[in-house]
Design a protein around this nucleic acid. Structure first.
Lengths: 218, 218
DNA sequence: CCTTATTTAATACAAATGTGCTAAAATCAA
DNA sequence: TTGATTTTAGCACATTTGTATTAAATAAGG
C-alpha cells in the first residue's frame, strides 16, 4: 500500500503558503514555483494536489473566505445586541495580524476577480453572505425595538456595510491610523447613531466615546 | 530638426492604454507588450517614454489620481453645504463608466502598492488628500453650526471616509445593486444623520428618503 | 524482505516576460 | 532637396512562466 498523506491537510498548507506569497510579494508573484518553495515542497509534488494554477488560486481564495466564516461562526453571543454586533464585526475586521493577512489576501483576490471569471462567483457569494449579516442585524435591532423610527432599511444596510468594508480597507492600508481601537469606536458610534437615545448600551458606560474634540484647521 | 511629438500627450495616451488593459485583463496582464499593443505603438517606441515598466505603472497610477483630483477641483459649489457635499462626493464615487474605470484601476494599483514600494508613497498621498476633504467638511459643518452637538470629530471623519470608500468598493463590485442612486441616497442619509434636525436640507424636500420599509426575513 | 500503489522530485519545453540594441522612418531647419 | 535628429520598429537575449512527463523515494501489506 502507498504512502499515506492527508490530502486536505496538504492542500490547506499550500493554500496558506499562497497567502504568504501574496502578502509578501503581491498576487502577480503567486507563481507555482514561488508558492511551492514557500510551502517547502516541489512543483511536481504540488501539481499532484492542484493540477492547474487556476485551481490553486481558487482554492486559496475559498480557504480565506472559509476562515472568515469560521471566525464568524465561532463568535459567542451574549444576547445583548449592543454588545454582540460590535463583537461580531470585530471578528470580521482586520484587528490583528492574522486577520490582516486574511484581509490583504482577500482584497488581492477581490481585485483579481474583477477580470477573472473563475473567482467572480465566490466573491459574489461572500459579498452576499456578509451583506446578509447586516440584514439580520437590522432585523434584530428592529425586533428589539432599539432602532430609531423612520429608517430606510435598504439604505441603512448599504451604509452600515459600507462602513465595515471602508474601515477594513483603511485598516489594511493605514494600520497606524486605523487601529483596532478606532475601528471599534467607529462601529460602536455607528450602531449607537441608529438607535434610540437612552435605551442602548446596557452594561456599557453611555456616551463615553462622545468627546467634544475640536476640528483642526486645514 | 527632428520629428516633433508632444511628449506629455503620448505619455498620457500610454497611461490610458494601461488603464484599459488593467480593466480588461487585470494588472498582472499589464505587460509592456500588451500595453504597447493597446496603445497602438511598438514596444521600442514606448520604451522611449518609459524606460522601465515600473516607471510606466507609477505614471499610470499618478495619472489616475490626477484625474480624480481634477474632477474634485472642477466641482462647482453653490454655498449650500447640504448640497455641495453630496455633489463633491458624487465626483469621487464611481457614478458613471469613466469614473468606474478609474476606480477599478485605482483599486488595482492600491492593492499592488501593498507589496510595491514604488507605489506606496502615492497611495499615502492620495489617501491623506481624500481624508483631508472630510476634515474640511466637518470644519465647514461645524462653522455653519449645522452639526449635532457632542460629536467626536476624529471618529466621525473616519466613519464618513469609510462610508465613501466602502460605497466605492461596493459600487465597483456590485454595480447592479450599488447604483449611483443608492450611493447618493447613502451619502445624503449619512450627512443628514450628522446634522441637527430641521436645520438641514435647504431647497431639498426634507425626509423624502426616509421611507419606512420593512426588513425582509432571512 | 519484497511488492505495489502513491507521493515526491527533477527535467523538459513552449510561451511570455523585461530590457537592451540596431537600423529604418519621419520630420523640421537650412 | 538635403541633412540633422528624434521617433519608431524590430529583433535578440536571458528569465520566468505554466504545464507535461518521467524517474526516484516512500510507506504499508504480503
Amino acid at each position: 500500500m502507498p504512502k499515506i498523506v492527508d490530502h486536505e491537510l496538504q492542500k490547506a498548507k499550500v493554500a496558506e503558503a499562497t497567502w504568504r506569497v501574496i502578502q509578501k510579494h503581491g498576487i502577480e508573484q503567486a507563481s507555482v514555483r514561488n508558492i511551492a518553495e514557500e510551502a517547502g515542497i516541489s512543483v511536481g509534488s504540488m501539481r499532484h494536489y492542484f493540477s492547474t494554477q487556476s485551481e490553486l488560486l481558487s482554492y486559496s481564495m475559498k480557504r480565506v473566505s472559509e476562515r472568515v466564516s469560521q471566525r464568524i461562526y465561532d463568535t459567542v453571543f451574549s444576547g445583548d445586541l449592543m454588545q454582540d454586533i460590535p463583537s461580531l464585526l470585530h471578528e470580521v475586521l482586520p484587528t490583528d495580524n492574522e486577520k490582516r493577512l486574511e484581509m490583504e489576501v482577500w482584497f488581492s483576490f477581490v481585485v483579481k476577480s474583477l477580470s477573472d471569471d473563475s473567482l467572480r462567483t465566490l466573491r459574489h457569494q461572500v459579498d452576499d453572505e456578509l451583506r446578509s449579516i447586516f440584514v439580520t442585524v437590522f432585523n434584530g435591532l428592529s425586533e428589539s425595538q432599539l432602532l430609531l423610527p423612520g429608517l430606510d432599511f435598504a439604505i441603512e444596510v448599504e451604509r452600515f456595510y459600507a462602513v465595515l468594508d471602508g474601515l477594513a480597507i483603511h485598516a489594511v492600508m493605514r494600520p497606524e491610523r486605523v487601529t483596532p481601537e478606532v475601528m471599534v469606536a467607529v462601529i460602536r458610534r455607528h450602531l449607537l447613531s441608529l438607535c434610540q437615545p437612552g435605551v442602548h448600551s446596557m452594561a456599557q458606560k453611555p456616551d463615553s466615546n462622545a468627546k467634544k474634540e475640536q476640528p483642526r484647521d486645514t
